[in-house]
Design a protein around this nucleic acid. Sequence first.
DNA 1: TTGAAAGCGATACCAT
DNA 2: ATGGTATCGCTTTCAA
Lengths: 349, 349
Amino acid sequence: MSQSPNPPKPPPPSRPTRPAPAAPVPTSADVARLAGVSRATVSYVLNNAEAVRISEPTRRKVREAAEELGYVPHAAARTLRAGHTRIVLLPTSHVPAGPLYGTFLGDLQWALRRLDYTVVQYGSLGLSGDQAARAWAELRPVAVISFGETLLSARNVATLKRAGAKAVLTLGPVGVPGAHALVMDQREVGAVAAAHLVARGHRRIGVVVPEEPGLELFSAPRLAGARSVPGAEVEALPLAYTEPSAGALARRFRSLGLDAVFAYNDEYAMLLMRALQDEGLRVPDDVAVMGADDLLLGRLLRPRLSTVRIEMPTGEHLAALVDRAVREPEEAPEQHGPMAAVAVVRESG
Amino acid sequence: MSQSPNPPKPPPPSRPTRPAPAAPVPTSADVARLAGVSRATVSYVLNNAEAVRISEPTRRKVREAAEELGYVPHAAARTLRAGHTRIVLLPTSHVPAGPLYGTFLGDLQWALRRLDYTVVQYGSLGLSGDQAARAWAELRPVAVISFGETLLSARNVATLKRAGAKAVLTLGPVGVPGAHALVMDQREVGAVAAAHLVARGHRRIGVVVPEEPGLELFSAPRLAGARSVPGAEVEALPLAYTEPSAGALARRFRSLGLDAVFAYNDEYAMLLMRALQDEGLRVPDDVAVMGADDLLLGRLLRPRLSTVRIEMPTGEHLAALVDRAVREPEEAPEQHGPMAAVAVVRESG
DNA sequence: TTGAAAGCGATACCAT
DNA sequence: ATGGTATCGCTTTCAA
């Protein structure tokens, strides 16, 4: 890894350790020099230190110097000195991308910022669980919130904790790994859907399992939840999010002897419902269809799509949870009850 | 935490500066001690340094010690020492959340990781442009890719550059701020939609402008693009993403004297189309409707939704662009041509 | 082949 | 009210 691209660069003879050709990024020392004060004073002024009192003229000089140089403190240096960060890490590999997640995520970020945390989404696509955990740990986050896109093993949690993470929360569909707090359980979604269908007199229930990678962590528990409902005879229905795939499934649908489908979520439900209708099946008379996530779009179809609405915890709520976990890491890893999931009955099932 | 056990180092009787009660996070020094070698050796081994050759037994000892302690290097320390990061920052305030963005973003992350960059999404919800720019600059990213959710001013770009960013790219709908490279122009989307409608013989074209905050940066250029088409009489149509809002617009629709609508994107188009149909208007006979983004769901409606497909640059392509900009920061900030947008004509318009 | 040590930038204790 | 300075963890040059 040759660092210097410029050939005519005589090796600096007397500088012992100088890794980079030195970009002229202003440091607090530069500010101090320009303001004619010490670095300590610069730090005091820019951080509004209460402990020491700096004269107003000095403050102004420092502020002006910082402004003139365009000085921005170096997060890494500050972190190193402080011995900890205020980073809350949100690992994101597959972003669920629904409006549900979207606004929830926005709320969460906003709420965490108010609590003075820095939210960092760290994409770890194509990394193994262990690799990812190490990469996250390098940032020394004070907390990690896993949304279940990536599977956290007990080992991974241990790695993070040893790297100083005070809290590791998982909203994932899978049980608590080894260490902190769980908030949601996707099985509930499948269970609510199936229970509703059974209550409506359906027995043979198909449950769509998306073929898209990265969704197993959601789809498997939803399937399992449906299976857990007494009186439901559940059949797994693999389906890709494409029209041909839906068409193929629809064509062999009658032979399946199913009288209802829980379609994983609203998007798959809409896709499948259209395919079934095109195949001549009547919804909900021949087959009932339920989605999940309560998308607005589902209401636009005819028949209107019945769905399972998921009561996400408020961003604010979750932020408070994180904050408490950070402040009191001693507390036993709490198990928060499974999230609420409620059937929204419209016309399709 | 006395560092060297062997030499009679003057024991610090009064430890002068000790910020934290010190969490027992293992450092390379701990690894060195356990392995019975120096910190330098640890560094060499763990970084597979080519320059020096370490005996195999030593390597193993070091590796085992690191494993046993669960050692993970401290990114901040490494960064500080190196003088630069490999962070590519993706500021995200409002996540557009479409599957379009979703897969694009996934690809991009993957491609950047292959080039040995670390992708960090940094949420800056509720921060002013200047505040956000400073927050980003603190991380000393080597590159910043703005997706246009946040408006980058020339000042902001300067801040980032002064903080060592070698490249600042914007995919935003708004022109290049002051400094680096532009890849997309949302005006093209509106222009393509309007041009298609005009070619079909429509004149009075309504253009939906979402009332949701954070979308102006996309919607304004799309509107402007539509306005720029000769022969189009464009009327802005504010619309919230709710059924009541769509209903209200549909009810007063006849009085508007419009014969076509470009609905911002497919989701708004689906919402509005349903409302118009419920109001008794026939699509496309009474009014043509076009969306944008080519969602799969749009094909499921009847009539099938016509749309504008946007040719996003490949994640790989953009990653390569970033890499080149980082390696050759001297290059003039390139203006990449406006992205391709093509009308996908189905049944609605 | 390995070790000692300098130093990256910011902070906070202790003197002045 | 300010300044000097040790320190955080890591990399890398130079010396042994």
